[in-house]
Every structure is written in structure tokens, then in C-alpha cells.
Simulated assay, not measured.
Amino acid sequence: MNRRTTALYLSILLASVLLLPVKTSAAPMSAEELKVLQESLSIVELDREITRIEEEQRQTEQTIRELERQLSNKDEEIKDSREQAGRRLAAYYMGERESLLSALLSANSLKDFLSMLDYYQLIAERDHYILNKYKTEYAAIEKTKRKLDRLSGELGSMKESLVKQRTRVAALQQSVDGSLDTSADPEKLKAMIEELTVYWQNVGLYEIRRYFKELSAAMAEFPDFLQEHRESLASDNGGYVLTVQEKDLNDFLHSRSDLLKNMAFVFEDERIIAEGRREGLELKVEGTYTVEQEPQNSITFHVSRIIFNGLELPDTTRTELENDFDLGFYPKKIVPFVEATEASIQKGTLIVKLKLDL
């Protein structure tokens, strides 16, 4: 059974327990049932985040062990270079190289002078090679040490994050267990949890990532927007103002993807809301744009809320999707000699202020 067929089948199967566009159950879910499903979905996603962190931690620990091995080997390898470099430097400080230079200058004939010059150049080149070799090997060791320190710090952060997420899961699980204990129909509630989990793991997460992937691909083509809407860019006080109308953005995104035709993008005060529904799945994404300078000047989209079939996803899922899919755009790809200084969202309009960056 392919994924599309599975999605349709599970949508029909879960229509009685999930918040779908068409209600098939006469009795709506209670606030307690919604709360339990919300917490259960958060547990599933936090468990997935824990698995991701554990794998990242395992890989980091493996990298640290390899770097420590490399560092130990390099320390052994550099001993000979260090000793040779030390002898060369000592020769200069002790005046041995000056005596060679004096011998060169006191040569009795041109033939002797040229012979001594060749000898002197060979020694100088060998000294230069040995000192440079040591310098290169020493720089490599220092670079490995810095990388090791950085990874050790990241590993510490991972361990802290792991403890944090496990604590959150334990608290949520305790709340769910308490709701099941006090429920008038715990078996029904358990079934709803199981069905939601199956739907999310087999369909929901895949479909949400699919929407984000399509959005990211469409926003990568945003420079074409200006070609289609030249009136959107206007000069202003030595710079420019890019004005994006809600309808124009909807038309642009819908023209880039059939999947996005199911979504509507609304500009409210200081936030953008994207809502869509398809085959039993309802998705609502809220976020805002900010100007960022690193790693390059950009208008970056930050996800503040994701609501899946009426259930809000946890911050870990928002962060993952924001990191995996770039929904922003880059002013220099629109006009090469400008950079963004400010982004604001008003009802129906996104306004980006640009300055010359020559």
C-alpha cells in the first residue's frame, strides 16, 4: 500500500477521533480528551527528539574519541620535528649560521664564493623546510584541540538537553496516566491515543514535512517574485522598500506548487498565518520574519506555532522544521547591491526596508 493510499485509509479510520474538517461523531471531544491527545502527541515528538539527541550524542562521542586518537598520534609525530626545529633555532641564536655567512664573505675566489653560496642556500632551505613543517604540524594540532574543545562543549549541551527532554516526557506521561486513571472511559481514551499516534507517525509528520519542503522550494524562487511584481520595489530616502501584498504572495506560492494551492497565507500584525487542509489533515503555521546578518543578510522566517488537526506541536518539532527547511529569502538575490535593515508585517502587507550596500 503506497503512502497516499495509507494516508486516505488512516484519515477515514481516524475521522471519529481527530479534529477533521468534517465531523463524523455526534459528540465533540471534551476538553480533557483534547488535553490528553495534545500531551500524547507531545510525548511522541519529544521521544523522537530524544532519539535524535541520543544518536547525535553517540556520533559526537565517536568523533571525540577519533580526534583524541589523532591528537595522540600527532603529538608523537611532531616530536622529531620539534627537536629538529629546536636545533635549527639554536644554531641561529648561538651564531653558527653567522659563521657560515662569514666564511661565505671571506671566500678567496669566485669559485669558492659560489660553492659556499650553494652550500649556504641548501642549509637555509633545509632550515626553512624544517621550521615550516613544525609550524604546519603545530597548527594542525592546535586546530584539532580547538575542534575537540568545541565538540566537548556541544556534548555537554546535548546531555543537558537530553535530561531536559526526558524530564518533560516524564511530566507529560504522568499527566496522561492521571487522566486515564480518572477517565470515565479509559479504554476509549487509550484507543484515541493509539490511533492518533499511528496517524501522526505514518501520515501526519510526513505530510507536514512535505508542506514545509514545498514552501521552502517556492521561497527559493522568491527572486522571481520581483520580476512578476516590479511595482513592489520602490526607492525611499536613498534606499528601497519592498512591499509584498498578501494576495500577490498567495498567487506566487500557488503558482509554484499544486500542494500549496490548499493553503492560504494571511498577514496579520507582526505575524504570518498559513492554513490549509487536505485529505483529513489540517495544518496551521504561525510565524514572523526578522532580519538576520549571519551567516548572511536575510529575511528569516521563525516558526512560533504549528497546529496539526487542532493539536499544537511542541517546540522541538518547530525547531526541527525551521532548521530543516529555509522559508526565508535573501535580498541580495533580488537586488545584488542592497541589504535588508528592517522587516515588518501589517495587516495584508509585508514591508522590507533595504539600504545600499556597495
Rank of each mutant, 00 (worst) to 15 (best):
R4C: 09
A7D: 08
Y9K: 13
L13S: 12
A15W: 03
V17Q: 05
L18Y: 01
L19P: 04
P21N: 14
T24C: 04
A26M: 08
P28Q: 04
A31F: 05
E33S: 03
E33Q: 10
L37I: 02
L41D: 03
E45T: 06
I50V: 12
T51I: 05
E61I: 03
R65I: 04
E68P: 01
E68S: 10
R69C: 01
L71A: 12
N73F: 10
D75T: 14
D75K: 13
I78S: 14
D80Y: 08
R87P: 00
M94D: 15
M94W: 01
E98K: 11
K111W: 05
S115A: 12
M116I: 08
D118V: 10
Y120P: 00
Q121S: 06
Q121D: 05
Q121C: 02
R126W: 01
D127E: 06
T136L: 14
Y138R: 14
A139Y: 05
K147M: 02
K147S: 11
K164D: 12
K164F: 11
Q165K: 11
R168V: 08
V169K: 02
A170H: 06
Q174P: 00
S175N: 09
S179D: 02
S179G: 00
L189H: 03
K190R: 14
E195Q: 10
Y199L: 08
V203Y: 04
L205Q: 06
L205A: 04
Y206D: 06
Y206V: 10
E207T: 08
E207L: 00
F212A: 10
L215F: 14
A217V: 14
L226Y: 11
S232I: 03
S232Q: 14
S232E: 06
T243F: 01
D251T: 15
K261N: 07
D269V: 13
D269A: 15
I272F: 03
E275Y: 10
R277V: 05
R278Y: 03
G280C: 12
K284L: 12
G287E: 09
Y289K: 10
V291G: 07
I306C: 05
F308L: 11
N309D: 06
N309P: 08
L313I: 09
L313C: 13
T317S: 15
L321T: 10
E322D: 12
L327E: 12
L327D: 12
I334F: 01
I334M: 13
V338T: 14
A340V: 05
T341I: 13
E342A: 15
Q346N: 15
G348H: 12
L350R: 12
L356Q: 07
L358P: 07
